[in-house]
C-alpha cells in the first residue's frame, strides 16, 4: 500500500519513457563509427552510473541532515520534531543508497558486457573500473551496517557517520587508483567509456533522454521504498505496543522489569 495518485502517474510516465527509450536507443540512434552497434550499451551503462552517483550524493546529504538533527537532544516539542526529521532523512539516506548500489551493480555488469565487445575482455584494471568496484563494495557495506538491528537513533547516527566517511574516502580512492593505473599504462581505454564527447548529436540526445528515463524510474522506486521503510518502522512500533500491552495484562511479578 505504498502507491498514491502521484506515484501512479509517475509510474505510467516512467514506463512510457522506458518504452520510448528502448526504441530510441536500440533502433533510432545510429551505430558508432568505431564501435558499431556495441555503443548502444552506453544508453544503459552511463545513465546507470549517473543515477547511482545522484543516489550517493543524496545519501551523503541526508546523512549530514541526520547528524545535524540528532545533535545532543533538544527536549519537548522541538525534540520530537527533530527526531521525526532525523528519521525522515535516515529513510532518505537508506533508500538512496540502495538505489545507488543497484545502479552501480548494473553499471559494472553492463560495463563488462560492453568491454567484452570493445576491448575483448570483461574486466580491465583501469582506474575508473577499480574505483567503481570499490564504490560498490563500500556502499554494500553501508547497507549491511544499516540492516543490523539496533536502537533506531543509534543506528541512524552510525550509518550517517559511515556514509560521510565513505564520501571523504572516495576522492582518496579515486586519486590513488588513478595514479596507480596511469603509472603503469598510459591513456589506455578511452574508446569505450571516456569518449562521449566524440559522439554525434543524436547519440548525445539519446543519452540525455535515457538518463531522464532512469531518473524517473529510480524516483518512482525510491518513493515506494521510502514508504516501505516507514511502514517497517510502524510495524516495529505496533509489535512493541502489542508486547507492552501483553506485559501489562500479565499478573505482576516481584522482580522489576528491565528494558535492556
Amino acid at each position: 500500500m505504498t502507491g498514491s495518485v502521484a506515484t501512479r502517474v509517475l509510474g505510467v510516465i516512467g514506463l512510457a519513457a522506458a518504452a520510448v527509450m528502448a526504441i530510441l536507443a536500440l533502433w533510432v540512434s545510429p551505430a558508432d563509427a568505431v564501435q558499431g552497434d556495441a555503443v548502444r550499451l552506453m544508453y544503459v551503462h552511463v545513465p546507470s552510473i549517473w543515477v547511482a552517483y545522484g543516489g550517493f550524493v543524496l545519501t551523503a546529504f541526508a546523512s549530514a541532515r541526520v547528524l545535524w538533527r540528532t545533535r545532543s537532544g533538544a527536549g519537548g516539542t522541538e525534540g520530537v520534531i527533530a527526531d521525526r526529521q532525523a528519521r525522515h532523512w535516515d529513510r532518505v539516506a537508506g533508500t538512496a543508497a540502495e538505489l545507488g548500489v543497484m545502479f552501480t551493480g548494473l553499471t559494472l555488469v553492463t560495463g563488462s558486457l560492453w568491454g567484452k565487445v570493445t576491448w575483448g575482455t570483461y574486466w580491465q584494471w583501469d582506474a575508473r573500473l577499480t574505483t567503481t568496484v570499490l564504490l560498490f563494495v563500500t556502499y554494500l557495506g553501508y547497507l549491511a551496517l544499516r540492516r543490523l538491528p539496533a536502537e533506531s537513533r543509534a543506528r541512524a547516527r552510525r550509518s550517517a557517520v559511515m556514509a560521510l566517511i565513505a564520501v571523504v574516502n572516495l576522492p582518496i580512492v579515486h586519486y590513488s587508483v588513478d595514479w596507480w593505473r596511469t603509472l603503469h599504462q598510459e591513456a589506455s581505454l578511452e574508446i569505450g567509456i571516456g569518449g562521449e564527447r566524440n559522439y554525434s548529436g543524436e547519440m548525445y540526445w539519446t543519452l540525455l533522454y535515457s538518463w531522464a528515463t532512469f531518473t524517473l524510474i529510480a524516483l518512482w522506486i525510491g518513493i515506494h521504498r521510502y514508504r516501505v521503510l516507514r511502514l517497517e518502522e510502524l510495524a516495529e512500533e505496533a509489535a512493541l505496543e502489542e508486547l507492552l500491552s501483553q506485559r501489562r495484562s500479565e499478573p505482576r511479578q516481584d522482580e522489576p522489569v528491565t528494558d535492556r
Binding site: L26, D37, A38, V44, H45, V109, L113
Partner: peptide, 9 residues
C-alpha cells in the same frame, strides 16, 4: 551483449 545488457538492467 547489447541485448543481455538491456535485459539484465
Amino acid at each position: 551483449n547489447v541485448f543481455s545488457g538491456y535485459a539484465l538492467t
